[in-house]
């Protein structure tokens, strides 16, 4: 079986995997990072989204061997060492953007990528369209959109205008 090494959440990791092992299986089963979830088998739901070399990807649609040498960030790698949440995590909490929590890790990872890739602003329409690859069954997305909108201002160091609901 291939032995692969990679960097996960800033720390070196290595594991023996089968060629057919998916990245999400490596993370969950070998590295015990169970925050990344699997919600479908057709690459639709986005519960498994992680960041690989700076890009958000669906870890259920990538082989573990393809991640050899890569830098991977999962939901477990977002909070700072003292437990302080990433602004996106904090805004999700603030705006009640999660209920059962199952889609949440993938949703947060996608949202961070979305905000990072829109330095000039992010409209509600862009947020909704940008979440095309993530399905939530609980919230109706209303509060997720609000949380991401708020996180954009925090992450880009801008003051959020006071707006009506």
């Amino acid at each position: 079986m291939p032995q692969i090494s990679l960097t996960v959440n800033g720390k070196p990791a290595s594991a023996e995997v089968e060629s057919r092992t998916l990245l999400v299986e490596l993370l969950r089963e070998k590295l015990h990072l169970t925050g990344t979830h699997v919600g479908c088998d057709t690459s639709q739901c986005g519960a498994c989204v992680v960041e690989v070399d700076g890009k958000s990807v669906k870890s259920c649609t990538m082989l573990a061997v393809q991640a050899a040498g890569a830098h991977v960030t999962t939901i477990e790698g977002l909070a700072s060492a003292d437990g302080k949440l990433h602004p996106m995590q904090e805004m999700f909490r603030e705006h009640h953007a999660l209920q059962c929590g199952y889609c949440t890790p993938g949703m947060v990872m996608s949202a961070i990528d979305l905000v990072n890739s829109h330095p000039d602003g992010l409209s509600e329409e862009q947020i909704r369209h940008g979440l095309e690859g993530n399905i939530c069954r609980c919230t109706g997305y209303h509060n997720i959109v609000k949380a991401i909108h708020a996180a954009w201002f925090v992450m880009h160091g801008k003051e959020m205008p006071i707006a009506a609901e």
């Binding site: 990072l33 949440l85 929590g101 890790p105 947060v108």
Partner: peptide, 21 residues
């Protein structure tokens, strides 16, 4: 009140059945 559940769900520390071995 902000939910007490959220910290664990947001930081990947939820404890769902498939997370257990």
């Amino acid at each position: 009140v902000k939910r007490v559940e959220d910290h664990r769900f947001l930081s990947g520390k939820g404890h769902y059945t498939d997370d257990m071995n």
